[in-house]
Design a protein around this nucleic acid. Structure first.
Length: 682
DNA sequence: ATGATAACAGTTTTT
DNA sequence: CTGTTATCAT
């Protein structure tokens, strides 16, 4: 049974063996964090003998949860009852399913996503910017402020308005039995806070708690953890203060910095052996992050010595940058490197554009990771809304989304009228239409539309009947009856959307096959919490934002846009230390080679602007020698230059020699090849 | 009700 | 430059 420790180093083993009391595991990038957390779980269950049902392991993303679950089950193949290992939000969902009745609500609530949230807000108030209101409401909920609290503490009129919208929003959610993402945690906390007995039994159930990526937790999540630890202090958190890059989203870096103050008697373990990156890469990453003042202090120690020096790439503009990177990638692939081992990272998504062009021209396949998520796509949300209405006729929220999709001649005005009338009759919209006479409907919408709308109701009932008999036939019936693929007919992106819909139908069939006993409504709430599962396509390199790259690793890594203004990105609310952590996260994704690229100017927001090389080069100790390169690449075709012997001439070509640039220069009719270091620009 | 055009803004993103 | 939203004709 010493098997668990076979693959662990001393510090990791010590962290695994410390099962009692608060534990803080500071896990540097590439230090075997997941291995440690999973080993600790296996140790608790198999060695210490804690029942799996008495443990709780929380992550932030479904992806992390899935990976951990798979690895945990690999480690404990004979386990009969798997431990609860899920995201914070999934935990909240499960908890609310069992306990939300204590708040006087029914447990058949629907989880809405950010898009739905904004639609609701927009309807309540369209004067103030919706995203602002949405983020403020989120902030209030995460600070446990009621609409009333929020109103009282706002001084500006606009913020008083926002507090009022918050109040109406809450009423709307309650009336329609909806729950937003923040509620999944906030209501869970509220229940535990208001019901000490429930807090006690819950805490007793989860005797051993582990949290992944602790540096990403916010104030409310900490409070929730404190409730879960009401009867014990067996809380083990794993994280890295140097990789805290979600401060702008409310993550509280203080949670990890001051964990030992929140939980007395904490044992601290530092995992500093890095098993991922070659020595020169770690040196650069360590040097950079050392410039941060607010950090606990760790240094990554290389276990993979040797390796190539970190390369600085300087280009005139983004097009040259793209060309150079494409050339380098082609060389790598020619030498036998697989495309999936190469990635390009950037701080802002727009920077992918020029690189995409360059890769396309060079015939290099790429895969953009991130961007719009599958389940957030309008066409997918349409399908989900259809399924929601078919499972629950009274889901007005979803019904309104689909009532005019495909077009049934009902615009905003008509829908508003119907909704108002239904409200007055104390009926759901579906019920109202069904029970209304043709005459009373004609008073609300155009005559010719009364027929289509009544048919729509009948169709829903018909498909719903089929759904009850066979979920399989239901999928075909859905498309055959409503012709959902026609919604986007004639639009430029019709093909993409139809493809996505087919993908969804396939996923749906798959779900039914895998869990035939679970109901459609279960499927629906799960879906809202699910993010896109990136499917790896064969021969393509990866491109993504630095944020999206966290937790991943690539043999050959290019980071573009290392310029002042892009990395570090400056603007209101920007935090240089967090920018530096972003640089650190980015650098430490590289296993074998790292290339850092910066340009002299970029076309951005409709105009070209000159850019300074990022200060991070200096801070990472990457400046010696780079000065020469920088000066020399300033040469371009057509420039007027001078040579000590040959005199004045014009550049007719620029190429790269081993250490310098080779310029082809026309000196009054005589063409010569000369190294750039002997040339002076005029 | 719907499609066309003007005005505008413009990190990072999971659940 | 791009994508989104507000407003205006039809």
């Amino acid at each position: 049974m010493e098997k668990i420790f076979e693959k662990l180093n001393d510090e990791q083993s010590n962290a695994v063996r410390q099962t009692e009391g608060p534990v803080l595991i500071l896990a540097g990038a590439g230090s075997g964090k997941t291995t440690t957390i999973i080993s600790r779980l296996a140790y608790l269950i198999q060695e210490v003998g804690i029942p799996a049902s008495n443990t709780l392991t929380l992550t932030f993303t479904n992806k992390a949860a899935k990976e951990m679950r798979e690895r945990a089950l690999d480690m404990m193949p004979e386990i009969s009852y798997p431990p609860l290992l899920c995201t914070f939000h999934k935990f909240g969902l499960l908890f609310l399913k069992f306990n939300i009745h204590l708040l006087g609500r029914k447990n058949n609530f629907v989880v809405i996503d950010t898009d739905d949230k904004k639609r609701i807000i927009k309807k309540i108030n369209n004067e103030l910017p919706t995203p602002l209101i949405a983020s403020e409401i989120s902030r209030y909920k995460n600070s446990l402020l009621t609409p009333n609290d929020a109103y009282k503490q706002s001084e500006l009129f606009n913020y008083q308005q926002i507090a009022k919208v918050y109040e109406e929003y809450e009423t709307y959610l309650n009336e329609n039995n909806l729950v937003d993402f923040d509620d999944l945690i906030a209501l869970t906390y509220k229940l535990l806070d208001e019901n000490p007995e429930l807090a006690k039994t819950t805490s007793q159930k989860y005797q051993y708690i582990m949290i992944d990526e602790y540096q990403d937790t916010n104030e409310l999540q900490l409070k929730l953890l404190q409730k879960l630890c009401a009867t014990h202090t067996n809380l083990c958190v794993v994280g890295d203060d140097d990789q805290s890059i979600y401060g702008w989203r409310g993550a509280h870096i203080r949670n990890i910095m001051e964990f030992d103050q929140d939980f007395a008697g904490t044992s601290v373990f530092k995992l500093q052996n890095n098993y991922r990156s070659r020595e020169p890469i770690l040196k650069v990453a360590n040097a950079l992050i050392e410039h941060n003042r607010s950090r606990l202090g760790k240094t990554l120690l290389p276990t993979r010595g040797g390796g190539e020096a970190v390369v600085t790439l300087n280009s005139q503009d983004e097009n040259e940058e793209a060309r150079k990177i494409a050339t380098k990638i082609n060389k790598l692939m020619d030498s036998g490197v697989g495309a999936q081992d190469i990635a390009i990272l950037y701080r802002v998504n727009v920077l992918s554009r020029s690189i995409e062009d360059g890769l396309n021209r060079a015939g290099i396949g790429y895969k953009l990771v991130g961007g719009q998520r599958f389940y957030d796509r309008a066409e997918i949300k349409d399908l989900i809304s259809y399924i929601r209405v078919i499972t629950n006729y009274h889901d007005d929220f979803s019904f309104k989304r689909i009532i005019n999709k495909p077009k049934r001649g009902l615009g905003k005005a008509s829908v508003d009228k119907i909704e108002l009338a239904a409200h007055a009759a104390q009926k759901s919209i579906f019920e109202f239409i069904k029970s209304s006479t043709i005459a009373s409907l004609e008073a609300l919408v155009r005559k010719k539309n009364t027929k289509t709308i009544r048919q729509f109701i009948k169709d829903i009932e018909e498909v719903s009947k089929i759904a009850k008999e066979s979920t399989y036939e239901f999928i075909d019936a859905l498309e055959d009856t409503f012709h959902l693929k026609d919604i986007y007919k004639g639009q430029v992106d019709e093909q993409d959307r139809v493809l996505n819909m087919d993908e969804f139908y396939a996923l749906f069939r798959d779900f039914i096959k895998n869990s035939p006993e679970s109901g459609l409504d279960e499927f629906l709430n799960e879906l809202t919490l699910q993010s896109e599962q990136d499917q790896v396509e064969g021969e393509s390199i990866y491109m993504m934002s630095i944020h999206a790259s966290k937790g991943l690793e690539f043999k050959h890594l290019f980071i573009i846009g290392l310029e002042e203004g892009f990395l570090p990105l400056v603007g209101d609310g920007s935090d240089l230390e967090e920018e530096r952590r972003l640089g650190y996260v980015a650098f430490t994704r590289a296993k074998d080679t790292l290339t850092l690229s910066h340009v002299g100017s970029r076309f951005y927001k409709g105009r070209r602007s000159d850019l300074e090389k990022s200060r991070f080069f200096n801070e990472a100790g990457l400046c010696q020698g780079s000065l020469k390169v920088e000066k020399n690449t300033a040469f371009k075709k057509g420039d007027l230059v001078r040579h000590k012997i040959f005199g004045t001439g014009r550049i007719i070509g620029v190429s790269k020699s081993s250490k310098d640039f080779k310029l082809k220069i026309n000196f009054a009719g005589t063409k010569k090849d000369i190294l750039a270091s002997f040339i002076e620009k005029l």
